[in-house]
């Protein structure tokens, strides 16, 4: 059977929390070997989308295909097996605080392989070298800066050479140097390993510069998609408001509220 061209596909994907609809019938295609970005303002459901693709959350409606398999129908055990093919870089890094950097990166290897210790050591040091932290192997997560923690977490996410790597807001809270380092790393890992990447972010400049394809999401719907250039030149008012960072526009500055005058009781009697 031929491999599907898209590694991940969502069809009519919807998800709500309580009364609030977070994702509204999304159709998203993540092509193999490319970097696809999901851009959108905070709270538009980007991180939720990643959690759905990794099946940490269950969708209310719709299907999610990973390499042709509908993951919404998988059992717990099959899911855990499937997740070995995915890596995820969490916003906070999510290193295990009771393990050293070295043990954090070695953790998936020890769990899923029977490799001898010397080979584990080599693999861990290679990944740590790739993110520039070979010298920090003995530090505990509490001793790392935010940027270092995220790089160590990246080494852990790629240790099993996953087919899909998901980045949750990789550039948030990074100084310009670290953001640049991370951007290059994401690019390099994508090229060297040939893996598929999904970046969820609201950092426009960094994301546009490394993505092959972009989806723009607002309030759980896709409002624009295309290559970085076509998105940049989009005529859609909502897309351009977001890309140019205009405070007011189709996405209102004000949370829905009664008339200002009326609220301040300034009406003439």
């Amino acid at each position: 059977m031929a491999m599907p061209q898209n590694l991940v596909e969502t069809r009519d994907l919807s998800f709500s929390r309580g009364q609030r609809l977070i994702l509204d019938s999304l159709d998203i295609h993540i092509p193999r070997g490319k970097i696809t970005a999901i851009l959108g303002p905070s709270g538009c459901g980007k991180t939720t989308l990643l959690r759905l693709i990794s099946s940490q959350l269950r969708a209310d409606r719709g299907t999610i295909l990973f390499d042709g398999t509908d993951i919404t129908r998988l059992h717990r055990k099959e899911l855990f097996a499937l997740r070995e093919r995915m890596g995820m870089l969490f916003q906070s890094g999510a290193l295990f605080t009771d393990l050293s950097v070295y043990e954090n990166v070695a953790f998936p290897l020890r769990l899923h392989t029977d490799l001898p210790e010397s080979m584990i050591r080599d693999l861990v040091l290679m990944k740590l070298h790739a993110v520039g932290l070979r010298g920090a192997r003995d530090l505990m997560p509490a001793e790392l800066s935010g940027g270092m923690a995220r790089r160590a977490a990246l080494a852990r996410a790629i240790i099993l050479d996953p087919e899909l790597i998901m980045y949750d807001e990789p550039f948030v809270g990074q100084d310009p140097i670290f953001a640049g380092v991370l951007r290059d790393l994401i690019r390099r890992i994508n090229r060297a390993m040939g893996c598929t990447c999904i970046i969820v972010s609201h950092d426009i400049a960094e994301t546009l510069s490394i993505s092959d394809y972009i989806y723009v999401l607002t309030e759980g719907r896709i409002i624009g998609q295309g290559t970085p250039d076509s998105v940049r030149n989009s005529k859609d008012a909502r897309v351009s408001q977001f890309l140019q960072g205009l405070p007011d526009g189709p996405v209102p500055f004000h949370y829905p509220a009664p008339e200002y005058h009326h609220d301040l009781q300034m009406e003439k009697v």
Partner: peptide
């Protein structure tokens, strides 16, 4: 705290229950 710092989610992603 492990939940708040996404460590539990990271475990699930690594394939650990």
């Amino acid at each position: 705290l492990m939940k708040a710092t996404e460590q539990l989610a990271a475990m699930e992603m690594i394939g650990v229950d």
